[in-house]
């Protein structure tokens, strides 16, 4: 061993990109290696799909569309929202273990750690969504979307995942423990996805709840996806959903990097 190193000088765009790739690879490996998580990615969406389809399906009047067609957009968006909590957990876990010290003491773009977790989230959510749509086909899901519309659906869902995952990363950075992340995340996302048009039409809700449910961002995303999938009127939902998601991303990304840089671990 010679006491010298052959490390490239200052970080460049190229090294930052390569750091991101290495850490994306790391987070993707986590998906496969973490069996318990895989269960959540594949089995949970199937369970929700079947439960909602058959338990609520007969009792909820969704007007012109069948319940399974109505449900698909809602359950996909809900699954994606809960899926983003994985980023919080991963970030909080990294912070409570020593590994974050190692990353920060390397001559690398340490924020790439966050990029890795967020990108893995997008992949994980894509798998869940695919599983749900396939199961949906088995239980009567009958979409009318064209290929171009499916691409738009994918685009909106990716934007939504990015927005949720970056917000989740912030939560992971601020949390005091991994357990806290789980509870706070659950309490934030549960009302947002249920006080929406995910599972029932908003018509029957009390006035104030209805105003909230019809205008909050999650409903905008659900309505946009639903319109593209099964041909309900899209109105302004498409672009409002896009603006919400892009807005959250623009705010959350710099804040997440800032918190990551300044966070004194332990």
């Amino acid at each position: 061993m010679t006491p010298s190193t052959s490390i490239s000088p200052r970080p460049t765009l190229g090294t930052v990109f390569s750091d991101c790739l290495v850490l994306i690879e790391r987070s993707l490996k986590h998906i496969i290696k973490n069996r318990d998580q895989l269960l959540g990615v594949v089995v949970q969406p199937i369970m929700f799909m079947l439960l909602f389809r058959y338990v609520f399906g007969g009792a909820i009047n969704t007007g012109g569309v069948t319940y399974v067609n109505f449900l698909m957009a809602g359950i996909v968006v809900q699954t994606v929202a809960f899926g983003s909590l994985t980023t919080s957990l991963s970030v909080a876990t990294d912070l409570t273990r020593g590994i974050i010290d190692r990353f920060k003491s390397l001559p690398m773009a340490s924020g790439a750690v966050l990029v890795g977790h967020v990108v893995a989230d997008v992949v994980r959510n894509a798998i869940s969504t695919l599983v749900m749509v396939l199961v949906g086909f088995l239980v009567g899901f009958n979409p009318v979307a064209t290929f171009a519309e499916w691409l738009m659906i994918a685009g909106i869902l990716v934007l939504f995942t990015l927005a949720m995952s970056w917000l989740a990363a912030i939560m992971g950075l601020l949390a005091r423990s991994v357990e806290a992340v789980q509870w706070v995340g659950f309490m934030a996302i549960f009302p947002l996805t249920f006080a929406s048009s995910a599972f029932v039409p908003t018509d029957g809700m009390p006035y104030f709840l209805r105003v909230f449910a019809e205008n909050q961002p999650v409903t905008q995303v659900i309505e946009a996806v639903r319109a593209l999938m099964v041909g309900t009127p899209i109105g302004s939902h498409g672009w409002i959903a896009t603006v919400w998601c892009v807005g959250f991303i623009i705010l959350a990304v710099p804040l997440a990097f800032y918190l990551f840089r300044t966070k004194a671990v332990r």
């Binding site: 490390i7 290495v22 790391r26 490996k29 986590h30 973490n34 590994i99 190692r102 690398m108």
Partner: peptide
């Protein structure tokens, strides 16, 4: 605190570090 990725193997951990040092 052993600062390694617990889910990755020993070899994967070391290769990851090498790549983060841009070797």
């Amino acid at each position: 605190y052993a600062a390694v990725d617990e889910l990755l193997t020993g070899r994967e951990n070391l290769i990851m570090m090498g790549r983060l040092y841009h070797l």
